[in-house]
Amino acid sequence: MTVTQLSSFVLVARLGSVSAAARTLDVSESAVSQALAALRSHFGDPLIRRAPGGGMRLTPAGARLLPVASRMVALSADAEVAVRAARGAPDELRIVATSTLAEFVLPSLVEAFASRSGRRTATSFGVVSGNEMRVLVENRLADIALGPRPGAGDRGEPVSEPLFRTRLVVVIGAGSPRPPGPPPQWSWLVDSSGTDPDADSGRLLRRLGVAEDHVWVFPNQAATWAAAAEGAGVAPAPAHLVSPRVRRDELRILETPATPSDVTWYATVLQAELRSPATDAFLHFLRTPAATRIMRAPGVGVPPSRFRPPVYVTLWGA
Rank of each mutant, 00 (worst) to 15 (best):
A31Y: 10
A51P: 12
R49H: 12
V68I: 14
G233N: 04
P179D: 08
V169A: 13
I95N: 00
E29L: 09
R116W: 00
R293T: 06
A223R: 11
I144P: 01
G194F: 00
S33E: 04
R207V: 12
P184L: 05
A281N: 02
A145F: 01
A222S: 15
V27K: 03
G231S: 06
G53S: 14
D45R: 02
A89Y: 00
L109Q: 04
G233P: 10
P304N: 04
T98N: 14
R306Y: 09
G181D: 10
S8G: 14
R165H: 05
A297H: 09
L163Y: 00
F43H: 07
H214D: 01
D91I: 00
V27P: 05
R134A: 14
V110L: 14
A97S: 06
V159I: 14
L25R: 05
R64L: 12
W316T: 11
M72Q: 15
A89G: 07
P177Y: 03
V300G: 08
P304R: 06
V234H: 03
I294G: 10
R14P: 10
S187F: 09
L101R: 02
A228M: 08
P257N: 05
R149N: 12
L15Q: 12
R167A: 15
L251Q: 09
V242H: 06
L25K: 08
Q34P: 01
A258P: 01
V217K: 00
L286K: 04
A152D: 11
P107G: 05
I95P: 00
R207L: 12
D196R: 02
A239G: 10
L204V: 12
L101H: 04
F285M: 06
L109R: 01
G53D: 13
A174P: 06
V217D: 06
G153K: 01
V110F: 04
Q271N: 07
A102D: 03
G181S: 11
V135G: 07
V234I: 05
R149E: 15
V300E: 14
R247L: 15
L283R: 08
E273I: 03
R64T: 15
T314H: 12
F218V: 06
D26K: 07
L6C: 02
A318L: 14
D196M: 03
P158Q: 08
E103Y: 13
A267H: 04
T314E: 15
R296V: 05
F164Y: 09
A211M: 01
A222M: 09
L15Y: 13
A232N: 10
W316H: 13
G173R: 05
R14T: 04
L254I: 02
G62F: 05
D91G: 15
A74T: 07
V210A: 09
R306P: 03
L25Q: 07
V73A: 04
G181R: 10
A229N: 04
V302G: 10
V32M: 10
G181W: 09
A291S: 07
R252S: 11
R49T: 12
G181V: 11
R23D: 15
Y266M: 10
F113P: 00
V242Y: 06
